[in-house]
């Protein structure tokens, strides 16, 4: 990466400034004028305010609304508060909650056990010096630039019961023998996952390729000279060295699985076997149903689950650097 200035001449350290900064071995600048300080304050303050108002404020508000029976009309008052009723209904009575959780978990499992490993495999294969590796990479990466909504359309052309490619190519389009890829709740999730993986595999491949490129070639050469097989080199040397990127790939996989929405929505609005936590939120609260408090409780469940990969990610990438 480009512009790192490596030479490190003695830092202008001026004996002023205090507070936390000093403890990190860096001193504040005394040369900052009042104007500078104002500019810095605005530079961070305005985006931060936007971030707090539009992202973190609503996140916290979701938690509060989830303890009410608010239906979106008028103001929320104390009379709307109904304690944990929404959660009780959600966990014990609402028929679509556990199926949605299960579908999200299947999504995670499929991505984690099939799509992500396939992406990693392609990365490992393409990392070698083989002819046409660039072309292969481009082809596998191509679906990544498409939105999942378009991916949904493209795969509907494969899956459509009477006119789709699959049912016509393997004669499965006659009444009685037809496989309804998108309408049968036993298989439509799998069908959608194949479509979503089409996009996910390339994504993982690119991330992993970048990781592989960063492995010091000397390590492998040394191992090869010692007579290690290729498989041994990968599993004993490369894979452990890539621990940080492995974690990131696991996290990316988890977050993508929780975010799944577009493709289920475009296929059938998330019903009949395609219920997901994300579609339940919008179907319940941003629709004529207007169960805003209840929908918020689902949002909070999704939030809590999402925080697991997010926290892991942050703790990985934000570790303070000590140079």
């Amino acid at each position: 990466m480009g512009n790192s200035t490596t030479a490190a001449p003695a830092r202008k350290q001026e004996a002023s400034g205090a507070g936390a900064a000093a403890s990190r071995g860096r001193k504040r600048y005394s040369v900052l004028t009042g104007v500078d300080k104002w500019q810095l304050f605005l530079m961070v303050g305005i985006p931060l305010a936007l971030d707090l108002i539009l992202i973190w404020g609503p996140t916290v508000a979701s938690v509060f609304i989830s303890f009410t029976n608010w239906n979106g009309y008028g103001q929320i008052t104390a009379a709307n508060v109904n304690g944990i009723k929404n959660y009780q209904v959600l966990f014990t009575q609402y028929l679509f909650f556990w199926p949605a959780v299960r579908h999200n978990l299947i999504w995670l499992a499929f991505f984690g056990l099939v799509a992500t490993p396939l992406g990693m495999l392609l990365a490992v294969l393409l990392d070698r010096e083989i002819r046409g590796t660039r072309i292969y990479q481009s082809i596998f990466f191509l679906p990544v630039v498409l939105s999942l909504a378009v991916v949904g359309f493209i795969w509907e052309l494969q899956y459509a019961p009477t006119e789709g490619f699959i049912n016509n190519f393997f004669p499965l389009n006659r009444t009685g023998h037809m496989i309804d890829w998108l309408g049968d709740p036993n298989i439509n999730l799998l069908a959608v996952l194949v479509a979503a993986s089409w996009r996910h595999v390339g994504y993982i491949m690119v991330l992993y390729l970048a990781g592989l490129k960063s492995v010091d070639p000397a390590l492998r050469e040394a191992a090869a000279i010692d007579g290690a097989t290729e498989r041994q080199i990968f599993f004993r040397i490369v894979f452990p060295v890539l621990a940080p990127i492995n974690v990131i790939i696991v996290v990316v996989t988890a977050i993508e699985s929780l975010r799944a929405f577009d493709i289920a929505y475009i296929i059938n609005h998330g019903k009949n076997g395609l219920e997901l936590l994300s579609t339940l939120i919008t179907n319940n609260s941003i629709s004529e149903a207007s169960l805003v408090g209840f929908g918020s409780a689902i949002a909070v469940v999704l939030l809590l689950i999402s925080l697991v990969p997010i926290v892991i990610y942050l703790s990985r990438v934000m570790r303070p650097e000590r140079s």
Partner: peptide, 9 residues
């Protein structure tokens, strides 16, 4: 990194 549906309401 949050799913957008968490904050949409």
């Amino acid at each position: 990194l949050l799913p957008p549906q968490v904050i949409i309401i």
